[in-house]
């Protein structure tokens, strides 16, 4: 699962990277994308395309692996067999998605080890929403349903992008996410229509998670830097606002029908424009959390790093088996 708000390079360095490209090759590349053909790893591509894709797919991968933690919190406590099995499978899927995404990014020339290194040293980012804690079972249900729903909006858009390996990974991921979404919805329905205690638990989770959910899609396009060339190259497929609007349109009615209250009294659909109106999210908080000062940033990275360190002897031992064999980027 993943949100918008990808961190793209500032545009001044972008221009530098574009300057030295062979205009003929660039034109062929752009024509191929315009025809709707996918780019495959062995094709020529502009340096900037490669760089931004690596950044985007890598961040997506990191979000999956860190995203396994807030829900993983409830693996050992899931109530009943059905929930226990499903949650294990769901968190496993998130790890699987990271594996797929790192593989796609690797075809562009960055090794998985380097990506993981950049994650645990804090050099590259992951989706901000996973820096918030899951206090109760209901929080994990909120994530399973609505954070995954948000991610699907984003991923379905990206799956129409131009890079073959990323599209293939996303096709597989989206298919698996449909289980997450249904499972999450199933859990929320059971809480929202259950005992008073269950309802209360669910409402509190909605109260806690609404702000991070609105942040999830990234700052409004009015604020964030416009990335025209990435749109032309089909790297960025939908704007943050488009994704947020689509999410609200699909899911607010589903939340309301369960008798849950969304903690934003300005939230409503403008019948004339068809757009959703809402209180502007606190983007200062968003920035603060992205820059490391959220409730769980420190824990998330420390846990990921502990996992890496505890597993280091295993990888060290096994790596001795492949001595002399050279790592090459995967094929597709």
């Amino acid at each position: 699962m993943y949100g918008g708000g990808q961190v793209f390079e500032p545009s001044s360095t972008n221009n530098d990277l574009l300057k030295d490209e062979d205009p003929k090759k660039l034109a062929e590349f752009e024509a191929r994308i315009a025809r709707g053909e996918k780019i495959e790893p062995k094709d020529w591509m502009p340096k900037l395309y490669r760089k931004q894709l690596i950044r985007m797919i890598e961040q997506h991968g990191h979000s999956e692996i860190i995203g396994a933690l807030p829900e993983g919190t409830w693996i050992t406590r899931a109530p009943g067999f059905k929930r226990k099995l499903a949650l294990m499978a769901k968190v496993q899927d998130e790890v699987g998605h990271a594996q797929l995404l790192y593989g796609a990014a690797e075809t562009l020339g960055k090794s998985r080890e380097q990506m993981i290194q950049d994650l645990i040293t804090g050099k590259s980012k992951y989706s901000n929403i996973f820096n918030y804690p899951t206090f109760t079972w209901a929080d994990s249900c909120f994530i399973s349903w609505l954070v995954d729903a948000g991610a699907i909006v984003n991923q379905l858009a990206n799956a129409r992008g131009s890079y073959g390996p990323y599209c293939r990974a996303l096709d597989r991921i989206c298919a698996e996410e449909s289980f997450h979404l249904k499972y999450g919805h199933h859990c929320v329905i059971h809480l929202a229509t259950g005992t008073p205690k269950q309802r209360e638990m669910m409402q509190e989770a909605v109260n806690r998670w609404w702000a991070p959910m609105m942040h999830f899609f990234g700052p409004s396009d009015k604020i964030s830097t416009h990335t025209e060339i990435l749109t032309k190259w089909k790297v960025k497929m939908a704007t943050n606002d488009e994704c947020r609007q689509q999410f609200l349109d699909m899911y607010v009615p589903k939340i309301w029908e369960l008798g849950l209250t969304i903690p934003d009294e300005n939230l409503k659909r403008n019948e004339q424009t068809g757009e959703w109106e809402f209180t502007e999210p606190d983007w200062e908080e968003f920035k603060r959390v992205i820059n490391g000062d959220g409730p769980c940033n420190k824990e998330r990275l420390a846990v990921r790093r502990t996992a890496e360190e505890r597993g280091a002897w295993v990888r060290r031992a096994l790596a001795s088996k492949t001595k002399g064999e050279e790592y090459v980027a995967p094929m597709a």
Binding site: I65, I75, T76, V91, E94, V95, R112, A307, V314
Partner: peptide
């Protein structure tokens, strides 16, 4: 308890 915290990604998945 290892899910999401395994020693390498593929093994994390298999063990889960």
């Amino acid at each position: 308890e290892w899910t999401g915290m395994g020693p390498l990604l593929e093994e994390d998945i298999a063990f889960s």
